[in-house]
């Protein structure tokens, strides 16, 4: 007998739908791996800067690391000074310091707390 009743047809069709819902097709692991690879590749693009920064050389990166060119200049000066002191010996440091400091007679000192005041302050 061929069913012609629409309600009966609907119920039968629902059985097919139910069977299909219970028989969920699963994707292969290879498919999931490809999708995951795509996701990682696209995500890596998000992290990249919009405008590529120019590549810095090793020396420039070192200079940047220690604080820029002024700091690097200070380091060079200190290094050269250390090498020079090591070469000429401690005895001759006066020769260098003489360039910066005048003789004892011209090196002025300022006493901001005259003698006695310090003791007076301490006594209070």
């Amino acid at each position: 007998m061929v069913m012609t009743d629409e309600k009966a047809k609907g119920l039968a069709l629902d059985d097919f739908f139910a069977a299909a819902r219970n028989d969920l097709p699963e994707p292969s692991g290879a498919f999931l791996a490809r999708v995951l690879n795509d996701s990682e590749a696209v995500q890596a693009g998000f992290a990249a800067p919009a405008a590529p920064t120019p590549r810095m050389g090793l020396f420039a990166r070192f200079a940047d690391l220690v604080g820029g060119w002024p700091a690097l200049g200070g380091m060079v000066t200190a290094t050269l000074a250390g090498a020079w002191i090591g070469f000429v010996g401690v005895d001759r440091i006066d020769a260098l310091s003489g360039v910066y400091f005048a003789s004892a007679e011209t090196l002025g000192t300022v006493n901001l707390l005259p003698d006695g005041d310090l003791l007076a302050l301490a006594a209070e």
């Binding site: 994707p27 498919f31 995951l36 995500q43």
Partner: peptide, 27 residues
């Protein structure tokens, strides 16, 4: 989260949305 660079979100979305996309495409 994925758009903000979270790698765990990528994996979770793949597991959640990949089978859905495949299932509908196959149907």
């Amino acid at each position: 989260l994925y758009g903000n660079g979270d790698p765990t979100a990528a994996r979770s979305l793949t597991l959640r949305m990949g089978p859905l996309a495949f299932r509908v495409a196959l149907r």
